[in-house]
Amino acid sequence: MNDDVRKNNDASKNLMKYQATTNKAAVLENLDAVRAMIRRHKFNDYIFSIIGLIALMIGLLTLLTLFIELIRDGSGRFNLQFFSDFPSRRAEHAGLLSAWVGSALIMAITFLVAVPMGVAAGLYLEEYAPKNWFSDLIEINVSNLAGVPSIIYGLLALGLFVYGLGLGQSILTAGLTLGLLILPIVIVATRESIRAIPVAIREAAYAVGATKWQVVADHIVKYSYGGILTGVIIGMARALGETAPVITIGALTFIAFLPSSPISTEPPYLNFEWLSSGFTVLPIQMFNWLSRPDHAFHVNAAATGAIIIMVTLLMNGTAIWLRYRIRKNIKW
């Protein structure tokens, strides 16, 4: 260590010499010292890139192994029947139908809750809220909310939606709960993509005489929706895999019926009975199968796990692709 410091000092002394003389020997000697120094500095690059690569691989390989394992174990069940069968006491006839329909309907509600509320809240905080201690407090809390364990949301929902508002253990309750759960993710994504818009563009819009609302509607929203959408999709992917809060509010683990269809053949063609229907979701179905002693069910669980991972990866992939597509025309 001490040695290193001395060497460094030598190099800088040599640098001074370099400025003071055109003597060739001195120049060459100095050059050697500079090269040694650069080599020493570059060694750190090398060390760090190895550590980084190892860290990355640990994460990636673990996930990959898990994924491959699930696909291998569940390979017997990757067919259409698996998606069109209700759960059953016989493993080879048990399917995902009620689970994926439940997940899809709940996701729809989650989307409808989290997007308008999250975007409006993010826009308000960035563009309209006065900057003072109160908005600072809200800001800190929004970020903290993203870190609250999801089961706490389940407890909140049990008290508020199930009992307080009497919505019961329904699809609507589950959708609202997951909507609340990913709200902070949407708010943070909204705020971050709004903040990425350069001040100069904002000022340009105000300078031609736009009102705040015109700036928000014609510029802020249009330039930030790529980032907002990415946040929404990532939030939805998280909601899809959530289990704890959904169990807390009382998801069923064995369900052999579908909610009534949202579309009907008679006017008014829409039907909202499904909102109050009982439900199950993919991760709960998976958990249910996994907890059976009969190993035949574990195949179903593995297949479900693989499907959840695939859908999640697909959603994240879509988010990346959308961001790329939308940001292509926006250079900042």
């Binding site: 350069p198 100069a200 563009i201 000022e203 340009a204 819009a205 105000y206 300078a207 031609v208 005489g209 736009a210 009102t211 510029h219 330039y223 025309n329 926006i330 250079k331």
Partner: peptide, 19 residues
Amino acid sequence: PIEVRMRISMVFQKPNPFP
């Protein structure tokens, strides 16, 4: 201020077209 900006326009130091 919006009324003022309707009457007085501005060109900035760095070009800042909208995307």
